[in-house]
Simulated scan of single mutants.
Amino acid sequence: MRHDNRNPRLKMLTRFHSALAALLLSTSTLAAQDITLHSDIGPAEDAEVVDVSKYESKRDGSYIVGFSNVAVINSWTAQLVEEANYRASTLPQIERYIVTDANNDPSKQVSDVEDMLAQGADAIVINPANPVALVPVLERAYEDGVVVIVVTADANTDKVTAKIMADQVKFGTDGGEFLVDAMGGEGNVIALRGIAGLSVDDDRFNGAADVIGENPDMEIIAEEYASWSYDQARQACESLALAHPQIDGVWSSGGAMTQACVEVFNEFGRDLVPMTGEANNGFFRTWKENQDAGFDSIAPQNPTWAVGEGIALAVAILEGQEVYDYYAVTADPYTAADLDELYRPDLNDSYWVGSTLPEEKLQELFGN
C-alpha cells in the first residue's frame, strides 16, 4: 500500500479510477431518481401500492409507450394531446411513443389498442371512449404483462395497473351548488352536456342534478349534448333558448359551451343568467367582458395535463418505482376573484388554464 502511494503514475491512475467511479455513481443515481408527478394529484383514499415486480422483465430503461386517445373534438382535447406529447418528450426512457385517435369510436379504439400490443407496447395509456367496450382488450393487455393506465374517462374494470381520475362528480356538484346559491334555490335550468355515454359527462351531470334536485323549486327543464364544442353549443343553446322563454340558469359541462351560450343570450337580447363554466381562457375572457352586465359564474377544473401524468406514471412503474394504483385530481373551482390573475390576454380563446407546457410552446400554440 505504501509502495502504491509512492508511485506517482499509479497514484494518478488510482485517482482517475476513483473520480470515474464517483461520476458513474452520480450518473446512475440521477438515472434512478424517482419520476415526480404533478403536485395537484395524489393517491386516492383507498389507493394501494402497485406490485411493480410484475413488470421486472421489461425493465431495461427503454420502452415503447402508447397513448390511445378517444378523439380530438375540441380545444381541450387538442391541448391534452400536446401536453401528453410534451410530457413524453421529457422522459428519456421512452424509446418509441405511439399516439392514436379513435375519433370517438369504441370499436376503432379497441383496434388501436390491439395494434399497439402488436407493436410490442410496454405500456398503454388510454382515455376510453366507452366504459364497457374497452374492458376486454384492456384486461387482456393487463394479463399479458403490459402496464395499463386509464386516465380522465373511466373503464369498468379493476384489471388495469393504475388510474388517474379527476373528481368529475365534484365538477358537477360545484356547479350545481353555485347555481343553487346564485338562483336563490328556485327557477328553470337548462343543461349543456358533453358526449353521451362517456363517464366524464355522466358523472358531471349526475353531480349537478343531485344538488339541484334537492331544491324543490328548481328544475332542469331540458338538456342537450354538444360534445364540449363551441360550435355545437351555439346551436344547442339557440335551440334551447328558442324553446324555453323562461331560463333562470345554465349548467354546462364545459367552458367553451358556456362561452357560446353567453354569446347566444346576448345576441337574443336575453338577460344574462348565472351559468357554470370551466377554466378556459376564452370563457374567462367572456366572463370578464360581461361582468359589468352582472354576469357571474364558476370555473371547475379538469386539467389537460392528466394524460401526460399517466404517461409519466407508466414509465415510473416500468422503472420499478413505488407508486399507487389510483390517483385523484381534486382541484378547487375558480371564482370571479381569480379572473384577473388567470386570464391571459396574450393567449387566444383555445388555451386551457393550468397548462404544464413551457411558455415558448404556449405562445407557439395559443399566442395572439
Results as ranks from 00 to 15, higher is better:
Arg2Gly: 04
Asp4Arg: 09
Arg6Tyr: 07
Asn7Asp: 15
Leu10Thr: 11
Leu13Trp: 14
Phe16Lys: 14
Phe16His: 11
Ser28Pro: 03
Asp34Val: 08
Asp34Thr: 11
His38Phe: 02
Ser39Leu: 00
Asp40Glu: 11
Asp51Met: 04
Val52Phe: 02
Ser57Gly: 07
Arg59Lys: 14
Asp60Leu: 07
Phe67Gly: 00
Ser68Leu: 08
Ser68Asn: 08
Val72Ala: 06
Val72Phe: 04
Trp76Met: 08
Gln79Trp: 10
Val81Ile: 09
Glu82Phe: 06
Thr90Trp: 02
Leu91His: 04
Pro92Arg: 03
Pro92Phe: 00
Ile94Asp: 01
Glu95Tyr: 01
Val99Pro: 04
Thr100Cys: 00
Asp101Glu: 07
Ala102Cys: 03
Asp105Glu: 04
Pro106Met: 05
Met116Pro: 05
Gln119Ser: 10
Ala133Leu: 09
Ala153Val: 11
Thr157Tyr: 13
Thr161Met: 09
Met165Ser: 07
Asp167Ala: 09
Gln168His: 13
Lys170Val: 06
Phe171Met: 05
Phe171Tyr: 15
Asp174Ser: 10
Gly175Glu: 08
Gly175Leu: 11
Glu177Pro: 03
Val180Pro: 08
Met183Arg: 12
Gly184Leu: 12
Gly185Ser: 11
Glu186Asp: 08
Gly187Lys: 12
Gly187Leu: 12
Gly187Phe: 11
Gly187Ile: 11
Leu192Cys: 08
Gly197Gln: 10
Ala209Gly: 07
Glu214Cys: 06
Glu214Trp: 12
Met218Pro: 13
Met218Arg: 10
Ile221Thr: 14
Ala226Tyr: 09
Ala226Glu: 15
Trp228Asn: 12
Asp231Ile: 09
Gln232Cys: 11
Ala233Cys: 13
Arg234Trp: 12
Ala236Glu: 15
Ala236Arg: 13
Ala241Phe: 11
Leu242Cys: 09
Ala243Trp: 14
Ala243Met: 10
Ile247Val: 14
Asp248Ser: 12
Gly255Glu: 15
Ala256Gln: 14
Met257Trp: 12
Thr258Asp: 15
Gln259Tyr: 15
Val262Phe: 15
Phe265Leu: 13
Glu267Thr: 15
Phe268Lys: 14
Val273His: 09
Gly277His: 10
Asn281Val: 07
Gly282Pro: 09
Thr286Leu: 07
Trp287Tyr: 10
Asn290Asp: 07
Ile298Asn: 03
Thr304Met: 06
Ala306Asn: 01
Ala314Leu: 06
Ala316Cys: 04
Ile317Pro: 00
Leu318Glu: 04
Gln321Arg: 02
Val323Cys: 03
Tyr324Ile: 02
Ala328Lys: 05
Val329Trp: 00
Tyr334Ala: 05
Asp338Cys: 04
Glu341Cys: 04
Tyr351Glu: 01
Gly354Ala: 01
Leu357His: 01
Glu359Met: 02
Glu360Cys: 01
Lys361Tyr: 00
Leu362Ala: 01
Gln363Phe: 00
Gln363Cys: 02
Leu365Val: 00
